[in-house]
Amino acid sequence: MKCCLVVDDSKVIRKVARRILEEMNFQIMEAVDGQDALEQCLQEAPDVILLDWNMPVMNGIDFLRSLRERAEIKQPVVVFCTTENDMAHIRTAMEAGANEYIMKPFDREIIEAKFSQVGLM
């Protein structure tokens, strides 16, 4: 079973994502911001991270940049999942090492399409 870390400061979004991903047979971990996510990745890296952009403490893009610098972490696939829906944000995310990009709102169909894009299904 593949493991997905859902990083989002919204409890509702985490809950929705968890439901969809569990239906897709993923084991779920949750983090409330980038700092929390980084700490969890140092303990045990997930296979994939579903990553929000705007969060308190440490935002998604800063988290992604620190994650990609940490040679000691087994690098997961990172799929952004954010309301930032313009080309500039998409480019920034991809340059920082994201593998795919979802513009909210999302549903199961979009998550499945994007996950299969990066070879997770």
Binding site: M87, I90, M94, K114, Q117
Partner: peptide, 14 residues
């Protein structure tokens, strides 16, 4: 936005 997220890889969107 919905249509470009069904099946289109982000690299091709960019």
């Amino acid at each position: 936005q919905f249509e470009v997220q069904r099946g289109l890889p982000i690299q091709l969107l960019m």
